[in-house]
Simulated assay, not measured.
Amino acid sequence: MTVHAQETSGAVGSAGGAAGYGLARYLIVRFLLIIPTVLVLVSVVFFLMRATGDPITTAFGDRLTPEQLQAKLHQAGYDRPLFSQYLDYLRAVLTGDFGTTATDNRAVSEVLSTFGAATVELAGFALLVALVVGLPLGMVAASYRDRAPDVALRLLAILNYATPVFFLGLLLKLVFAVGLGWFPASGRASIDVQLELQDRSSSTGLYLVDALRSGDWSAVTDVLAHAVLPSVALGLLVAGVLLRLVRTNLIGTLSADYVEAARSRGVGRFRLVTGHATRPALIPVVTVLGMQIAGLLGGAVLTETTFEWKGLGYELAHYLTARDFTAVQGIVAVFAVVVAVTNFLVDVVAALIDPRVRY
């Protein structure tokens, strides 16, 4: 009996060690994939920007003599072989040097630190909207499969995803800001609140956090009011994806044997959905939600421009118009790192929730 118990204990220990090794190997591989992901995206942006020509010729080509133009190109390094420029850029990025913007002569790192918090705040608000709208509506759609609520919600999800975010933003501004006057049409806060929050020595750049720390509830209300329309415009883009995904997965789990057994015992529809079927159905949602971070960052460019939300998306649109290579490459590099790291963290969560994804 003792020998059998020891053998069983050894087998369990071996299985646990194998599972731990599998998880560690999976996480190491996923972490190492961050490097090629960022490298590919940064490289694509570098060569695409160079294919459009240099910004100096575009800005000063008709105002400078050929000699003066050549001198400026040489000073900026645009007359050197393209591959040499590429290698120098990669070396600089690896040391944390993103260069200096050509249009306003600012360090790109300063642009990132100044405007990055605004984009993070908007993405956080939009993600909250997506979760609040997408998850419960997906559960409702699955509960009323192929009936009127399900059909209506599926159409709504398709409409949300298909509508351009800038068009939805303009529509929201027209109805709720201009027409009804319920919310501000642009900006992150009123001018006086913005100046008050920026003047604080401990400012984080996250207006809601700074307003809460100050204890000024009028400032908190003002910041939230300014965030409603851009957050809804951007959040509905992801909410449509979540709604359809939650619906599809819940329909699958609602037909599982253990759910059918609970239904046969007289468990009600609400408890079946929320207590038995939801958790297994949300595992794929966690993975997809990480991939939607890229959509939020991409949509932030148009949303911030539409609502004059002074974040990295707003600045990126400005630098793209000016064809400022250095600024665009720096901002895109940061976006790439954020997306890659977020996807890695999502993989970690998914592996902890569902051991099957490790193999």
Rank of each mutant, 00 (worst) to 15 (best):
Q194K: 07
G61P: 05
V40I: 15
G299E: 09
Q198P: 00
E67I: 02
S109R: 13
G53N: 01
T278S: 11
V357I: 15
T287Y: 05
S143Q: 00
Y86P: 04
L206F: 15
V44Y: 08
A15Q: 13
R323L: 13
L128I: 15
Y21R: 13
V12L: 11
A130V: 02
A76N: 09
P81T: 07
T114K: 13
A11D: 11
A130H: 04
A185Y: 05
I158R: 06
T95G: 04
R271I: 05
A262F: 01
T119G: 11
Y21C: 01
A141S: 12
Q75F: 08
A219S: 15
S14F: 06
M49W: 02
V246L: 01
V3L: 14
R323E: 05
R106E: 04
L243Y: 01
K310S: 14
A11W: 08
L39A: 15
L73R: 15
Y21W: 09
G240N: 00
V140F: 06
F335L: 12
N160I: 08
Y258W: 09
L272M: 04
A327V: 08
S109V: 13
G252L: 02
G138S: 02
V346F: 04
I28G: 03
D79Y: 04
V40S: 11
E67L: 01
V337L: 14
V349D: 02
D347G: 05
V238E: 03
A107M: 11
T101N: 07
E260L: 13
A262T: 00
L195A: 09
V341M: 06
S143L: 00
S143I: 02
E304S: 14
Q292V: 00
F98P: 01
A327S: 12
G205I: 06
V108W: 09
G313D: 06
L243W: 06
H4G: 00
R188K: 13
T204V: 08
T253L: 01
L128S: 12
L155V: 13
V42C: 13
L195D: 08
L352I: 15
S113Y: 12
V129A: 03
M139K: 00
V286K: 02
T119M: 11
V40D: 10
I331G: 03
L168A: 13
E315L: 11
T37W: 01
A11T: 11
P66N: 01
A340K: 08
P36V: 12
T342D: 11
L352C: 11
E304V: 15
R263V: 12
R188D: 07
N249V: 00
D150Y: 00
A336I: 09
T119D: 11
W309I: 08
G275Y: 10
E308S: 15
V223Q: 07
L39D: 04
G99R: 12
F46N: 05
R358Q: 09
G13A: 15
G116I: 09
V301S: 10
Y314S: 02
A239P: 06
F270Q: 03
L345N: 10
T8C: 05
F47Q: 03
R279P: 01
K310I: 14
A148M: 13
S231F: 03
R247S: 02
D88I: 04
A294W: 10
